[in-house]
Design a protein around this nucleic acid. Structure first.
Lengths: 212, 212
DNA sequence: GGGGAAATAGGTCATGCGGCCCATAGGGGA
DNA sequence: TCCCCTATGGGCCGCATGACCTATTTCCCC
């Protein structure tokens, strides 16, 4: 689980980003601050693995904040307007990457995973950056969840939508109730859970409720 | 369920807001567009009850978009910089409300509920606006969910965290297994579900997984 | 061609679960 | 005062659920 902290004075953006990143199964937003000094305070009580910093903030702005961050804590600058100047300033202040607010959530999540793995993105060319982001595109799931088969994911998806009875699951998938129970048993093992309620909760956490 | 559509060219903001609003049990983001004309296209295929429009957008900007929206569809302007000029322009173009991106998610959600209920916020003074927002602060739950007792919510919260067996629920709450089953039976009735898996799914949808 | 994984399906069995009764104590509103 | 709601607890019963084991077919990879 990668712990993320956000510093941004636009509360709607920060709270939206928090919920969006939290919906990634391998990311967890552990704190949201409105400026740099607030983030430093929160960081003291609540460690994080990666921090996101807005450049334009009242009080302690992004550049100052970057300089004040503990060494070894990767920081990703997320700014409204990104150009060569901001990029250079961010690099000089120790940022590990720079993203525009026009970037997609998908790419931001990939960048956070890359930073948590120790990669530095800010010196990369466009092509290299692309390669790295693709590499970290997928949520880093637990070994169990990663080995789920297509059919098992399909069943989990239905479970996460409230299709709980063996009978209805079998009807929805055009297979026998016996096969459904076999798949469920396999799912329970892979997810280390003991019944379909826990499996449903885990499926929702893994983001499987939004498919088909 | 209030259907919301978002038009904003800053993808991170739009996607973050989408997930954040979706996490409100009574709101559902049915579309996200990068500018006004794209939103009109999506709207044609997917009706919405309230739209959120950014003022600063490339292509068809916020003011043009407001003018082009169907009559009767309440629009909330969500802009980076809000001042008297933007407020006047938005009102003239038919916006039902104006919010800064520095507003909180909580207030935005309340405003969306107010608009869906037919209220117009843009002509209100600060005090009046405050009164209305407080009125629409709480998610509008189904009659069933609204009548849940404290104890039932406690059990649902545990269920939503994967505490599924009668035995463990009883241990966590220091009550007998029999009482747990009685509470569960009452929960099933109120939520119109038939087993604890469906109850857990519904509990997560209602946002009960985040408590205690 | 052979081995392994996945999807399909069956059997058995103990037990957990949900439905439907009832009872008691406490608190709050009519 | 009396009644209703909530929280607590019990009994009973039928069936669904989960654990364990076997088997067949298909498909892909070595």
């Amino acid at each position: 689980m990668i712990r993320v902290m956000i510093a941004d004075d636009h509360q709607l953006f920060a709270e939206g980003l928090r919920d969006a990143l939290d919906s990634q199964p391998d990311l967890r937003v552990v704190g949201v601050a409105a400026d740099g000094s607030e983030m430093l305070t929160v960081l003291a009580a609540q460690p994080a693995d990666v921090v996101l910093v807005d450049l334009e903030m009242p009080g302690m702005d992004g550049i100052e904040t970057l300089r004040a961050l503990p060494r070894g804590l990767p920081a990703l600058v997320v700014s409204m307007h990104v150009n060569e100047d901001t990029r250079t300033a961010a690099r000089a202040a120790g940022a590990a990457g720079v993203f525009s607010k026009s970037a997609s959530l998908h790419r931001l999540a990939a960048a956070i995973r890359a930073l948590a793995a120790g990669r530095v993105l800010i010196d990369l060319g466009d092509d290299e950056l692309e390669t790295v982001l693709v590499e970290y595109e997928q949520p880093q799931l637990d070994p169990g969840a990663a080995s789920l088969t297509e059919r098992e994911i399909e069943i989990l998806s239905l479970l996460a939508q409230g299709v709980s009875s063996t009978e209805e699951l079998a009807e929805r998938l055009y297979i026998s109730q016996k096969t459904v129970k076999n798949h469920l048993a396999s799912i329970f093992q892979k997810l280390s859970v003991s019944d379909r309620t826990q499996a449903a909760v885990e499926a929702i956490r893994l983001g499987l409720a939004r498919r088909r």
